[in-house]
Design a protein around this nucleic acid. Sequence first.
DNA 1: GTTGTGTTGTTACTCGCCTACTAACAGACA
DNA 2: TGTCTGTTAGTAGGCGAGTAACAACACAAC
Lengths: 257, 257
Amino acid sequence: MQEGDAIESLERLGLTSYEAKVFIALQKLGSGTAREVSRVADVPRSQVYSVTEGLEDRGLVEVQQSSPMQYRPVRIEEARKTLRERFETESDRAFGYVESVRNERGGEREEQEAIWTLSGRGHVAERAAELVRNAEESVVFAARTPDLVTDDIAAALREAATGGVTVRVVSVNPDVRELFESDASIATMDTAEPAVDDERTGRAVLADGNVVLMSVLGDCGDIPELNTETAFWTARTNFATVLHELAMNSISPREIA
Amino acid sequence: MQEGDAIESLERLGLTSYEAKVFIALQKLGSGTAREVSRVADVPRSQVYSVTEGLEDRGLVEVQQSSPMQYRPVRIEEARKTLRERFETESDRAFGYVESVRNERGGEREEQEAIWTLSGRGHVAERAAELVRNAEESVVFAARTPDLVTDDIAAALREAATGGVTVRVVSVNPDVRELFESDASIATMDTAEPAVDDERTGRAVLADGNVVLMSVLGDCGDIPELNTETAFWTARTNFATVLHELAMNSISPREIA
DNA sequence: GTTGTGTTGTTACTCGCCTACTAACAGACA
DNA sequence: TGTCTGTTAGTAGGCGAGTAACAACACAAC
């Protein structure tokens, strides 16, 4: 972890660059005067006074009105808690309002022939799980690697299976199939000849003959946590019906005992 | 709750003004084209395209690449979760680094004759509880109203009392004294003639003859949740010894059965 | 089939505000 | 006398807000 990264993270948490640098400098110093802080933080001394006042207002710093003035940070746990509480307060305010106005214009309508794109592993997983939960007759789920099978997806598959939906899990990867081998109500299958033998394919959901989600994994950048999975999904459209059929045809139904 | 407030809150959560407006507009519409979003959000149509792309990158919006393009928000719970996870990720990064560099310059040193100021009810409560926990011989705690006696402070007082520290709770307010009347190890007292009969006094901690914290309550502004309590505290200083003695003298030790 | 109108998606531009950063000054102190 | 402190003022740059323009497309009217 580099200091520059920490500064950027504190900026994303709402601090200015100077505030972040001063906060970190005070953690290093324990306590200090404006001059000491300025040197460690590489912030102009004349700016330290107003910057630390801002941090004090935010409850992140304590000030001793002596001569020279002394500054010290609050405890790290206290600082995190302060920032988290501010975050939760703003979330409550924002989403409280959003809850109150949602769909005030006429309800959520799903366009005919609509194909939606979405990005980010978490969101793809969330949407996949939701499509599984909404299935009424059958679900085929495919994933290239076990880490693409989130707990939420696994739970949704099991819940659908115990609820009477025909559930099949398909993968070239035996580790993925193994996840469900103990589930009597879930069939696991190999795909002898994958339609696309591309290591960038991610996961797929095929449900009820007219619901389809497919994802691809993008090139991993320098930042491992950067979500690079992109998916499209479509439901109750002609696209969905056609894609569903194409995908099902490409799956060789060689069942594994 | 006004829309302006919600927009400001979303801005504090890291969105730009346009992003916040578009996000809220999509919640109202359920889904919509750039033109529809522009009208509802009062954002120039030409800006909606890049703004929604930014929201999609953040996992807050789904896009249908049709003609015209259609946009829809992810579920509210999903959006909150996304923002919270981003917040926690940045917190982990920032504070992970801060943990690693804390006091690298020579440990936390408490200046001789230091008097520290701090603001915000939460921080004052936190510091007060900490001073109580650190007491070894005696503690006197005073508060004007019961809401100034947080659970943390109450727990700290009880813990100190059962640990052998002489604990006394002093208040002109019978509701405050009542909080501890069932605690055999905590003495509660009235102050027959308060030293300062000012409704802006907040709370006080007097410990071990040389630890003092005193707070005042500021004028409450239009925003009730704005923390307006300011405190100073000092420990093991001559100030502390003198202030401790002065404060103790002003407390009439008329014990209540 | 042509024309006029409205819409779409994209690009470029200006302005204002906020932050980063520098400079200067009066007073205190060794 | 030099250094430090706390305060104030100023400039520059970057980013977001907001406007303008354009090519291409869709659609209705004739």
